[in-house]
């Protein structure tokens, strides 16, 4: 019963952090507005540079995840960096458990990146004629799992870089090697979904994605204490 109480306490702390971030985001819409503009600009550059060229379906799968990766890199670091900049880290350390902070931030970042990815995919499908999903189920699972893995790994790296000096440039540098197994398998699964593959063909990629999500989530929860209590 004691453990259950502790878990409930952590959860309510996590929900509090999540709703704090959500309210402050809804009040200013700083992150979402700038991220939407970022996506529009990136997509425009890609469309300019591919105008008149024939983009193969498998190439279009890769381009989609390049946009998703860099949008995440420009948006997700804020979650911890803003606490450092406003000097509110200490307050959070006093009030809630470290795991609540991580889970709360993870929930908010996941929501942000799911909303953003939905917009990216919609805009991409409308503007990129080569990108036609023939196996919707594979694509849906890929996006759901891939986005979750992306937000877990990048939330944890954001916590690390919030303590460092050159935050903006360091973030993609540290995240890319960690995210590469995820990116390789989501790109491959997306390519399969565009080519109209059967579910069995994409099963290998899903296994990698699932094990990646489990491993990275576990490691982040174990190690977050060291980063946060620093």
């Amino acid at each position: 019963m004691k453990q259950l109480g502790a878990i409930l306490g952590e959860m309510s702390g996590a929900v509090a952090i999540f709703s704090k971030d959500l309210y402050s985001e809804l009040r200013t819409r700083y992150a979402l507005n700038s991220l939407i503009m970022f996506v529009v600009v990136t997509l425009a550059i890609i469309l300019f540079s591919t105008a008149g060229e024939t983009v193969t379906p498998s190439l279009s799968a890769g381009i989609l995840w390049i946009i998703v990766f860099f949008a995440a890199m420009s948006g997700l670091s804020r979650s911890f960096v803003s606490e450092e900049e406003r000097g509110t880290t200490m307050t959070l350390q006093l009030w809630v458990e470290p795991s609540s902070v991580l889970i709360g931030k993870l929930l908010f970042n996941s929501l942000l990146i799911y909303v953003l990815n939905a917009m990216i995919i919609l805009a991409y499908m409308l503007t990129m004629p080569a990108f036609v999903v023939k196996s919707p189920l594979i694509f849906l699972i890929t996006v759901l799992m891939g986005t979750f893995g992306l937000s877990t790994a990048s939330t944890f790296i954001a916590a690390i870089i919030s303590k460092a000096n050159s935050k903006g440039t360091l973030y993609p540098v540290l995240s890319f090697p960690i995210l590469l197994p995820l990116l390789m398998s989501v790109i491959d699964a997306t390519r399969l979904s565009v080519e109209g593959a059967t579910f069995g063909e994409a099963a290998g990629d899903f296994k990698i994605l699932l094990s990646y999500c489990v491993v990275v989530t576990t490691v982040s929860i174990i190690l977050f204490d060291f980063v946060w209590r620093d």
Partner: peptide
Amino acid sequence: FSLRSALEVEERRATLSAVYSIVAFVT
């Protein structure tokens, strides 16, 4: 190495680079 050079306080550099090497190793 970029992470190490971006952290000035020694204890913080040691902790965070240790954490990063563990996360990198599991992938």
